[in-house]
Design a protein around this nucleic acid. Structure first.
Ligand SMILES: NC(=O)c1ccc[n+]([C@@H]2O[C@H](COP(=O)([O-])OP(=O)(O)OC[C@H]3O[C@@H](n4cnc5c(N)ncnc54)[C@H](O)[C@@H]3O)[C@@H](O)[C@H]2O)c1
Ligand SMILES: NC(=O)c1ccc[n+]([C@@H]2O[C@H](COP(=O)([O-])OP(=O)(O)OC[C@H]3O[C@@H](n4cnc5c(N)ncnc54)[C@H](O)[C@@H]3O)[C@@H](O)[C@H]2O)c1
Lengths: 256, 256
DNA sequence: AGGCGCTTGTGAAGACGTGCACAAATCGCG
DNA sequence: CGCGATTTGTGCACGTCTTCACAAGCGCCT
C-alpha cells in the first residue's frame, strides 16, 4: 500500500489528489456517505464526526474513517469532518462535478418509471435521451423528453455526450442493445435485464436484478424459519436431500 | 451484520442440516446460477459442466464449483451437473419451493412498474398485496390486484402470509413503513427508498438505490477519463484541486 | 500555558473471498 | 478390462475487506 499523497495543500482549503485507485468496496460506499452528507447539510450541520456520519450511512465508524482517509480527505481531530468540504470531495472523486448524461433504452414498464423519476437530477445525473424499438412508443413524451427510435442512437449520442447507458429492455434484447451502446462509445452500462452481458474490456457493467434481491431475502427467510423451527428436541429433523428432494417446510414467517 | 453460528449441531439428527450456512457471497450468486440453469433447461440441456454454467452466469468456473460444493450438491466427475437436479437443489436452498408472498408498499411511479411486472412469478414470488397511503390510489386495480390503504396492512398480512415487504415510498415515509411491516411480522424487506432503515435484529433489509449504481459507474467513468488523459509517463500527474474544484476531463469513451 | 476530552488516522490481526492447479472420480471406447 | 479423456471437488496461497484499539492531533477551558 504505497500511496503517496500531496499533503501540502498550502493556503486554500482541501486539495485532493486526483484519483487514487480506491478499493472497490470503498467506492461502493461513497455514494451512501454522500447522500447522508446531503441530508446533514440540509439540517444545517457544519461538521460531523465519523461516528455521526457512520450512523447516518449505516456503517461502522472505523470503516468510514478508513474510507475517507483513502481519498485523502482530511477531517479535523477533535472536531470531525467539514460537511460541505466532504461533499465537494466525494462528488469530485465520483466524477459528479459535471452532470452526466444518461441514455435510457427500453421505455416499457420499468423504463417509464425511471424516465419519470426526478430524483436523479439531485444525484448528479440527467436523463438525456429515451429510446425504444417499438414504433408505438416512439414519439411519446415523458417528462419533457421524446422517445426516439433506437436506431437514432448514434446520431443522438453524438449530439448529447452520453456517459452512461441504462438498459431496461427484455432480456432477449439486452445484449443487442449493449452492443449498440458500446458501438456509439458508451463505456458504462446499468443493466436491468436479467441476463449477463458480454462487453469489451474497458466497459463497465452493473446489473440490478430485483428478483435476485428477493431470492437472497428468501434464502435468509428460509434459514430463519428452519432455525426457529428447531425445538432443540430434534423435532422434525430436517429432511436431507437423499435423491429426490423431500422438502418439509412447516412455518415460515412467525412474527413475535 | 453479525451472524450467529450453531456449529455444534447439538443432537445432530441424522442427516445434514439442509441449510449449511453458506458464505454470503455464495448466496448472492446462487440466484444467478439458477437463472442460467433455467435458460439451459429450456434449451434442452440435460447436464452442464462447471465451465459451461460459469460462462452462462458470468463467473469463474472454480468459484462456481466451490459454491456448488458448499451446498453439498454433487455433480458427476467427467460429466458435469444434472441441470434439473441442480435447479431443484438451488431452489430448495433459496427457499423457493414455496411461492413466497410479497407485499408492495408505495404504488407510485416505481411501485406501478413493480406491480405490473409479471416476471416475478417465474422466479418464485407472488405479489400478494399492494398498499399506499394516498386515498387517490387506494382502490385502483393493477394487474388484478387492488391497492389497499396501508392501514389495512395488519389485516391483510394476517390473511395472506406475507414473507417479504417491498418499500417503494418516498424516503421520508420509508422508516415508518418499515416499522409497520416489522410490526406485522415481516422479517425481510427490500427497500427502494434512498435512506437507511433501522430495524430490529433478525430482520433483513436489502437496499436497491439506482442513483448509487449510477454514481459507482460515474466513478469508473471518471477514472477511465483521467487515466486515458495521462501521457503514459509513469508519474500520475495528478490534477489537484487548488481551491475550487478544477476538473480536467477530456475524453470519456475509448473505443478499443 | 497546560491539561483534558474528544476525534481522527492507521497498524495489525483476523475474517472472508478468489483463483490456480491438481488429485480423484467417472465415463466411453477399444 | 483397462486406458485415456474429461470434469469435479478442494488444498493452498494470495489478495481484499473489516474491525479493534490506540497514539497523535486538535480545540477548549481553566
Ligand atoms: N418492471 C419491473 O418492475 C421489472 C422488475 C425486474 C426486472 N425487470 C426487467 O426490466 C426489463 C424491462 O422490464 P419491463 O417490465 O419494463 O418490460 P416491458 O416489456 O414493459 O418493456 C420493455 C421495453 O423495451 C422495448 N424494447 C424491446 N426490444 C428493444 C430493443 N431492441 N431496443 C430498444 N427497446 C426495446 C420494448 O418495446 C418495451 O417498450 C426486463 O428485462 C425485465 O425483466 C423489470
Ligand atoms: N421511480 C424511479 O425510477 C425511482 C428510481 C430510484 C429510486 N426511486 C425511489 O423509489 C421510491 C418511490 O419512487 P416513486 O418514483 O415511485 O415515487 P412516487 O412519489 O411516484 O410514489 C411514492 C408512492 O408512495 C406513496 N406513499 C407515500 N407515503 C406512504 C406511506 N407512508 N405509506 C404508503 N404509501 C406511501 C405515495 O402515495 C406514492 O404513491 C422513492 O423513494 C424514490 O426515491 C424511484
Amino acid at each position: 500500500m504505497s500511496q503517496h499523497r500531496h499533503p501540502g495543500a498550502p493556503g486554500r482549503a482541501g486539495a485532493v489528489p486526483a484519483l487514487p485507485d480506491l478499493p472497490e468496496a470503498t467506492v461502493a460506499r461513497l455514494p451512501e456517505y454522500l447522500r447522508a452528507l446531503h441530508n446533514l447539510a440540509e439540517t444545517s450541520h457544519e461538521t460531523v464526526s465519523s461516528e455521526g456520519l457512520a450512523n447516518a450511512a449505516g456503517v461502522n465508524s472505523a470503516k468510514l474513517r478508513k474510507d475517507l482517509s483513502q481519498l485523502g480527505s482530511y477531517g479535523t481531530r477533535g472536531v470531525g469532518y467539514d460537511v460541505a468540504l466532504l461533499i465537494d470531495q466525494i462528488e469530485y472523486v465520483l466524477g459528479l462535478t459535471q452532470r452526466r448524461a444518461v441514455a435510457l433504452v427500453g421505455v416499457g414498464n420499468l423504463g417509464h418509471a425511471l424516465a419519470g423519476y426526478d430524483g436523479f437530477a439531485g444525484r448528479g445525473f440527467r436523463i438525456a435521451a429515451l429510446f425504444d424499438a417499438d414504433q408505438e412508443r416512439v414519439g411519446e413524451e415523458i417528462n419533457g423528453l421524446i422517445v426516439r427510435h433506437v436506431d437514432e442512437l448514434p446520431r443522438v449520442a453524438a449530439e448529447e455526450s452520453i456517459a452512461i447507458g441504462v438498459i431496461a429492455t427484455p432480456a432477449a434484447a439486452a445484449q443487442r442493445v449493449a452492443d449498440q451502446l458500446v458501438s456509439v462509445g458508451v463505456t458504462s452500462i446499468l443493466n436491468f435485464a436479467p441476463c449477463v452481458l458480454s462487453v469489451p474490456e474497458g466497459v463497465d457493467v452493473r446489473k440490478v436484478d430485483l428478483a435476485i434481491e428477493l431470492q437472497i431475502l428468501s434464502f435468509h427467510e428460509h434459514r430463519k424459519a428452519t432455525l426457529t423451527a428447531l425445538p432443540a428436541a430434534g423435532g422434525p429433523a430436517l429432511t436431507a436431500l437423499p435423491g429426490g428432494l423431500a422438502v418439509t417446510e412447516s412455518q415460515e414467517a412467525i412474527g413475535t
